[in-house]
Structure formats: structure tokens, C-alpha cells
Simulated scan of single mutants.
Amino acid sequence: MKWYKSLSFALLFLVTLANAQSANRFFYELTFKPKKGIDSLQKTVMILDVTDKKSLYRDYLTVSQDSILKITVEKMQKSGIFQDMSKVIRQPKFSHKIYKSYPTMKVQYIDAVLNGGRPLYLSYSEETKFNWKIENEKKKIGEYEAQKATTEFGGRKWTAWFTESIPFPDGPYKFSGLPGLIVKIEDAEKNYSWELKGNKKIENYNELSYSEQLMAQFGGSLKTTDITREKFEKTLADFKKDPFANMRDQLSQIPADAKMPGTDKSVKDFIAEKERETKELYGSIDNSIEILEKK
């Protein structure tokens, strides 16, 4: 039943894509154009968790559904009946995580691919320096008095508004280096626009989501493999084209008449359905935040 164990890790990873300390969590509404050349917009909520040594930026869905996921998993464990968690849990729009180390603001960008049915966490690190031009213009963004700053980054021109009333030189995505937290930032063509909508203090903060804790509990590794950005981008692009490529040998060993536990659906039909859904998800966004030069 090796194939079933690998499949369990794979499905958990695909539908859900720490220390005892406190953290300040900032909630950003991200408005973005997912497709190149198309003006239709989508929205999602991203979070920036700030501790004394680092910050962590990610899609809020990766943690907001923890309680639902926990209840679903515990119910499956008690009943022994498989439940398709993709019917309960929504897949985040963005699967990456970004750490910034204080005070250097060195960036570690992390995403994952499937390797033999289990997630393999890949990362690249970079010293991201922003050449900010701070201007005199000020205005109120939400409840904050903010000041304007501009820069160029990732092939786009950006306008940011920061507030010195929150003395963190940080912001959403990779942005940092201003004398206060960024409360709004968008590129000139409004492909991506983040705006701070709220914040709260989290006591006994654990940066791991429930799905990550579950993977660690069942022997999955959360260790990241740091590679060059060029290799990272290629590996991730190849994975998105064929998410199950590294499982082909294992999938071929599944008996033709095998059924998903607790269902009348065949394992192969179930996998084909998940593969199609996963490819559609990854193909729904082709307008990247950074415009990478082709070599």
C-alpha cells in the first residue's frame, strides 16, 4: 500500500498548499490581475506576521482554515472513512511563503513541489535592496497617516504609502526598507495592489499551519532546500505543467480496480480529476508580480 501512503501526502499537500512567542499579524487585501492583458480583477487576503527576529508573508487561507482542516482530519481518523478535503478546504491563490530576517531584511522565498507523493520545499535567498524615493506628499490610508514613496522593482514601477506610526520597516511581499510599515503599495498599471485592512496581536504564536504540523507528525520533512533562483523558477514551472510527474511510477502500481477508501470512485479516476483541477489552478494566474528577464 505504498502508493496509498504517498497519495495521502500528495492530496494533503495539494488541498492545503515554531516557537512560543507573540507576533503582530497585519492583514492586507490584495487586488490583482491574474491574467496578462486582461483587466479583470481578483481579490484575496495576505498576511504579514512580524516577530522580533523576522517576518513571514503568506496567503491567509493557509492558516484561516486550520480549524476546519483539523476537524475534518480528526473525523477521518475516528471513522476510517476517507473524505475528499478539496470539497471542504479552499486552495490558496498563492502557495509561496516569504521570510525576511531582521535587521538585514534578507529574503527567503519558499514554495513546494511534489516529490514521490510528499512535498519538497524549495527556496531561494536574496538580498533585496530597494532604491526608495521618499516624497513630501501625505494622505490618510484607512486609519493611518501615510507618506508617499516610489521605487522600481521586478520590472515594474511602484508607489508605496508608509506610516511611521507603525515602526516596522517592512511590508507585503518582498517590500521593505521604509521608515515605517507599508500600508499600501501598487504598481503603475495596477496589476498588483496591497492595502492594509487590519492587524492583531497573536500570543503563543506558531508559524506552522495545521497542515504543516500534520505533515511533520506523519514523517514529512519541512526542511527547505535552498537553490539558485534560476533553478527554482524552472523547477516550479515544470511542476505546474505536470504536478504528478514524480509520482508516475507509483501511480502505475495502483490496481485497476482499486477504489478510494469510503467511496465508489476508482483511485485512478480520482487522481485524474485532482490532476486536472491542480493544473487549472496553476494555470489561472500567469501575470507574475515580478517580470523576469528571459535568458
Rank of each mutant, 00 (worst) to 15 (best):
Y99K: 07
I71V: 12
I81N: 15
V73S: 06
G80H: 09
I110H: 05
D170R: 00
Y121E: 07
L122H: 02
V73H: 08
I71W: 06
I141P: 09
K139M: 13
G142K: 02
F153V: 01
T62V: 08
M85W: 13
A160M: 05
K106M: 02
G154D: 00
R90Y: 15
I182Y: 11
S86M: 04
S67F: 14
S101G: 01
G80N: 14
D66T: 09
Q83N: 10
Q147G: 01
E74R: 15
T62A: 12
G142T: 08
D84H: 11
E135F: 11
P169N: 13
K78L: 15
P172R: 15
S125A: 08
K174H: 06
W132R: 10
V73D: 03
N136Y: 05
P92E: 00
V88T: 11
I81G: 05
I141G: 07
G177T: 05
K70C: 07
K129E: 15
I89K: 13
K129I: 14
W158D: 03
T163H: 10
D84S: 12
A160D: 05
L178T: 06
L178V: 04
E127S: 12
P169H: 05
Y144D: 02
I71S: 09
M76V: 11
F175D: 08
P172N: 07
I81W: 06
G117T: 12
P103N: 06
M85T: 13
F130W: 10
Q65M: 09
D66F: 15
G80V: 07
Y173A: 01
G171T: 02
H96G: 01
T163P: 13
G80P: 13
I166C: 07
W158H: 08
E164T: 10
K70T: 03
T163I: 06
Y173Q: 02
Q83C: 01
S86G: 10
Q65A: 12
V73A: 11
A146S: 15
F153G: 07
Y173H: 08
M105G: 00
Y109Q: 04
E152T: 14
Y99T: 06
Y144F: 15
P167C: 00
D111M: 06
K75M: 11
P167L: 00
S125C: 09
V73T: 07
Y109I: 03
N115K: 15
I134L: 11
L114A: 03
V107A: 08
A160V: 09
E137V: 11
